[in-house]
Amino acid sequence: MRELFRTFIHRLVALFRRRRLEDDLDEELRSHLEMAVELNLRKGMNTEDARSEARRAFGGVEQTRENYRVQRGIPMIETALQDLRFGFRMLRRSPGFSALAILCLTLGIGANAAVFSWIEGILFRPYPAVTHQEQLLALGGTARGEAPGTLISWPDFLDLQRSCKLFEAFFVTKITGTTLSIGDRAEVTTGSIVSANYFDAIGVHPILGRGFEPREDTGRNAHAVTVISYQLWKGRFKGDPQIIGKTQRLSGTLHRIVGVMPEGFYGTFVGWAMQFLGSRVDGGNI
């Protein structure tokens, strides 16, 4: 084990001292051959025989050099470095072609990155912050005499929630818009109406205040409450820490702000950034 470690260190160091070590090896092999020639001369051979005999006894000098190099460094890295140097030389030799090739690669990689991040946003992970988005499924209703994909009725939704065991949870959500007037500024914003179990179903909970309580979405207890987005809180309300409990007029109706969603949550409609969530599924104004 210690030997392995030592060998590795030795090889690693050799990687950075290649020229020195190469000279060393040359010198060592030359000295070997010269000694052999000298000995042969003393044995009475002529110069030529002495030389060829020394080489014969040594075996292939180039082969020895090659085996030595393999043992000395880390051949894989050395070859890679060689390739790299060669590549750079070739690039320098024809700058016009190189520039064109680099430009093509740049554009190609850029376009690919753009397409894939777009695909990720649209297809793979369209709802940031929502846990288990791959399990989300949109369900639409049909009604006689109407185009398919119409809204599902509230009683149908209750039936599904009660008796369909195929899914962990059912929630309803509907896109809506409103005029948001704060101070003397009014603007059109997008939001969604959701059933009270929305937050549990998608696994995202407000960072301030609360989500909607059961039965807050329908019936007698339904009242005008809203959970706002992080962007809205930071932007229009200047991150007011006392925001919970304040009221805000949405399309003319006063709503009480009961919660603020976490940063990076944009609702569950592809391509939309929801600014607020309302709870009155059965006939509120928003």
Binding site: H32, M35, A57, G59, T64, Y68, V70, Q71
Partner: peptide, 30 residues
Amino acid sequence: NQGTLYPALLRLEQRGWIASKWDISENNRK
């Protein structure tokens, strides 16, 4: 083949079993 000696010597040195240094031989050769 005398040449095969040199990778072997390097291997032994890498493992720390032998050490090497340059010196002058009996015939005044490095």
